[in-house]
Simulated scan of single mutants.
Amino acid sequence: MSRYLEPFKRKVLDLLADGTPVKHVAEDLGISQQTIDNWREQSLVDRGELSGMTSTESAERASARRRIREREEEVRILVRARELVKEAPRLKGSTRPSR
């Protein structure tokens, strides 16, 4: 997740659109020129002026990857639980049928 909020990024891009040099914006706000260049490039992609993955697509992809990792962890937990149940000692007088 970005440490900068979208309204801040938009304000930076507005300053650039008004003609303020990247170097000045970076120095005044204490952020790197590379960060500003990345925001400007992503803005072009989002507006369809440059090819690439849009911010929305990127967020959806990250969300999907997160859900996949969560499901994989759930499967690992269930598999381990099943193994533990199989390994559990049989109690005398157990009502579970033998296999």
Rank of each mutant, 00 (worst) to 15 (best):
R69K: 10
L78I: 07
Q33A: 10
V79K: 14
L5H: 14
L16N: 08
R40D: 05
W39P: 02
I68R: 12
S43A: 12
Y4S: 01
D46S: 04
G93P: 09
H24Q: 15
V75E: 03
R90W: 14
L50M: 02
G93D: 02
G30W: 05
L44Y: 06
E6C: 02
D14A: 13
S2G: 00
P89G: 08
S43D: 15
R69Q: 01
D18N: 07
L84P: 05
G48H: 13
R40W: 04
T56C: 01
L50Y: 02
R3T: 11
D14K: 08
K11H: 04
G19R: 03
R90S: 15
R10H: 03
L44Q: 00
V22G: 07
V79W: 11
E57S: 09
R80P: 06
V22M: 02
R40K: 13
T20Y: 00
A62G: 10
A64I: 15
E70P: 03
D46M: 00
R80N: 14
P21W: 05
E73P: 07
G93W: 03
S58Y: 06
E74H: 12
D37V: 10
I68W: 06
Y4F: 07
Y4W: 12
L15Q: 01
S55G: 00
Q34M: 05
R10V: 13
S43I: 01
R40E: 03
R96A: 06
A17R: 15
S55I: 03
T54C: 11
G93T: 01
R65D: 09
K92H: 14
E87I: 12
L15S: 07
R67I: 04
E87T: 15
T20V: 06
L16H: 10
A26R: 07
T95P: 11
E41M: 03
E49Y: 06
D37I: 13
P89R: 02
R69T: 13
S43G: 14
E72D: 12
R10I: 09
E27C: 11
V85R: 12
L44G: 03
D18F: 05
K23P: 08
T35L: 05
L91A: 13
